[in-house]
């Protein structure tokens, strides 16, 4: 299998350990991937709130650099690329690549890989990404999301439900006051869940929650790579979490 990997600006610039984890996962799953050096920012909200034309044209350019399948590391990139490609493809009659968010890609490809998982038993809460779930695109149940939880279960981790699970963390709010209030509210809800860590597939959620939460905020790729035997230090999994897991 051959894909384009689109990591997104936040992960590339701020979270090298997440980039490493995703690449470890793809390599261990035998997926060939390519990262077009010249792809630009997917121009999400800040842009298309102001200038739809710029959003569509930047992504038409991105589209031409991509293979038939694109896997995104951040759900906000997924939404921006996916929705822009659909519009460009309809307007211009060009075939759009299929965009897969990392969680969905894992759910579809994890089975039958003959992987031996090396850690189990961690209690995880999921920070669901607003822009993966909504507007509903038929990829998950928008009111009762299962995709990320199912991947965690398959890897041997224990997803924990909590009150306020669908609430937005404010990672894409532009006003400081709103950002802070939503982050605090969400961090409290996550801490009350009693889990050992929070799992996300959106770089904005990660950034927002890492600033306020006492729990470790991990990308799904980090736990996936850990299961598949990657070096915990390289993929940024803290020791305190390793101590809470069992080796099967």
């Amino acid at each position: 299998m051959s894909i384009t990997l689109y990591l997104g600006c936040v992960i590339k610039a701020l979270y090298p350990e997440v980039e490493k984890a995703i690449k470890e996962v793809l390599e261990r799953m035998g997926v060939n991937f390519e990262e077009p050096k010249d792809a630009s920012c997917c121009a999400p909200l800040g842009f298309f709130s102001l200038n739809r034309d710029a959003w569509l044209r930047l992504n038409e350019r991105n589209m031409r650099l991509f293979q038939d399948t694109v896997v995104t590391a951040c759900d906000d990139c997924f939404a921006s690329l996916n929705d822009a490609f659909k519009i460009v493809s309809e307007n211009k009659g060009i075939k759009a690549p299929e965009v897969k968010p990392f969680g969905k890609f894992m759910l579809e490809n994890l089975e039958n890989r003959g992987l031996r998982f090396s850690f189990k038993g961690l209690r995880c809460t999921v920070q669901h990404s607003c822009h993966f779930l909504r507007p509903a695109r038929g990829m998950d149940d928008a009111e009762n999301p299962r995709v990320v939880k199912s991947v965690l279960e398959k890897l041997g981790y224990l997803p924990v439900s909590y009150d306020g699970e669908l609430d937005c963390c404010g990672g894409l709010a532009f006003e400081e006051r709103v950002r802070e209030m939503l982050a605090r509210r969400k961090a409290e809800a996550l801490e009350k869940s009693g889990a050992d860590c929070v799992v996300s597939t959106c770089s904005h959620c990660m950034r927002q929650l890492r600033a306020v939460s006492r729990l470790p905020i991990l990308h799904l790729a980090q736990l996936s790579a850990l299961s598949m035997g990657a070096n915990p230090e390289e993929i940024g999994v803290p020791d305190m979490l390793l101590r809470r897991m069992v080796k099967p």
Binding site: V10, K12, E17, D38, E234
Partner: peptide, 28 residues
Amino acid sequence: GLAFSLSKEVEEKRKLLGLPGFGLSEEG
């Protein structure tokens, strides 16, 4: 062409992890 730039610290870490260069080409 990207929404964030690289700090010195992350640049070092990327090297250590063997991750590729960052940023678009001049033409891009």
